[in-house]
Computed example of a mutant assay.
Amino acid sequence: MGSQAQVESNDSTLSSDEIHELLSNSRRRQTIHVMKRDDGTADLSTLAEEVAAWENDKPVAEVTSDERHLVYTSIQQNHIPQMERAGVITHQRGELELTDEAEELDIYMDIVPKNSIPWGEYYLGLSAFSLALVAAVWVGVFPASIPDLAWAALIGMLFLCSAAYHVYRSREMLLGDDEKPPEFRS
């Protein structure tokens, strides 16, 4: 399909490359986060204050006019035009609004934290462990007093617990699902 393969969606106009480009900048992610959190809209001035507060690790009330102005100018001149061209927001007189295209960005926010393994590798390891366990049960390594169904239940529970935790962690990484964006959470 090439590097310009379209994201699978009925009316999608964003390529994977465009989505990655949009999400590669923290201020664009933070802008999208605030808008998703606040029902799809934001006032540019308020947004700039909040982003400046996160970037300077201080409450909004302590943000200086210079800090707010730097963020405001950057978002207004660089990030809003790029997000408008991509079709994920509309902008009129300082009021921003998400479009339906912005929903496509959620699937790209599955972040692997430091000192962690990617989920695909985790499930590969869990599958290998499960097959090794089945082979050990088959050749009689474990006592016959443990029913075969117990081993199947154990494997099922391992996958169920892993998948539940995976879903929980993935939801934590979504933009707009918490007061702060994922990169500013402890």
Results as ranks from 00 to 15, higher is better:
163 A>H: 15
118 P>F: 04
127 S>Q: 12
109 M>V: 04
107 I>R: 15
101 E>Y: 00
135 A>Q: 07
129 F>T: 03
156 G>M: 04
148 D>A: 08
74 S>Y: 09
75 I>E: 01
148 D>T: 08
168 Y>K: 10
110 D>H: 11
100 D>G: 12
143 P>M: 13
118 P>Y: 01
82 Q>E: 14
91 H>N: 12
92 Q>Y: 14
83 M>L: 13
166 H>Q: 12
129 F>S: 02
106 D>H: 10
134 V>A: 08
65 S>E: 08
105 L>C: 03
121 E>I: 05
161 C>N: 14
74 S>D: 11
92 Q>G: 01
94 G>E: 07
121 E>F: 09
61 A>P: 02
65 S>K: 14
111 I>T: 06
169 R>L: 10
167 V>P: 08
65 S>D: 14
99 T>A: 09
138 W>A: 04
132 A>H: 13
84 E>H: 13
72 Y>G: 02
112 V>C: 03
73 T>F: 10
65 S>Q: 15
171 R>T: 05
61 A>D: 08
127 S>E: 11
153 A>R: 14
74 S>M: 04
157 M>E: 07
161 C>P: 11
121 E>C: 01
105 L>D: 00
146 I>G: 00
65 S>T: 14
102 A>D: 02
112 V>L: 01
142 F>C: 05
148 D>F: 08
93 R>V: 02
85 R>I: 00
88 V>E: 00
79 H>K: 15
95 E>D: 13
122 Y>I: 01
139 V>T: 06
146 I>C: 02
76 Q>M: 08
68 R>I: 00
122 Y>G: 00
154 L>V: 06
92 Q>C: 00
113 P>F: 00
124 L>R: 15
61 A>I: 06
68 R>C: 03
106 D>S: 14
121 E>Y: 14
82 Q>W: 03
93 R>Q: 12
154 L>N: 02
120 G>Y: 09
121 E>W: 15
124 L>C: 05
157 M>A: 13
164 A>W: 13
133 L>C: 02
145 S>T: 05
140 G>M: 03
77 Q>G: 06
77 Q>W: 10
119 W>C: 05
78 N>I: 09
86 A>N: 03
64 T>Q: 11
57 D>Q: 13
71 V>L: 11
79 H>W: 10
167 V>K: 10
136 A>V: 02
68 R>V: 01
125 G>K: 15
125 G>E: 11
135 A>M: 06
63 V>G: 01
162 S>D: 07
66 D>C: 04
134 V>K: 13
63 V>E: 01
150 A>G: 03
114 K>E: 04
79 H>T: 08
134 V>L: 12
117 I>M: 06
135 A>W: 03
133 L>S: 02
154 L>W: 07
88 V>K: 04
168 Y>P: 11
121 E>Q: 13
58 K>M: 12
122 Y>H: 12
122 Y>Q: 01
57 D>V: 03
68 R>Y: 05
152 A>P: 07
135 A>T: 02
66 D>R: 15
58 K>H: 10
135 A>V: 01
158 L>N: 10
154 L>K: 07
82 Q>K: 15
104 E>R: 13
110 D>E: 15
162 S>V: 06
140 G>E: 03
110 D>W: 10
154 L>Q: 01
165 Y>R: 06
91 H>K: 05
97 E>G: 09
90 T>A: 09
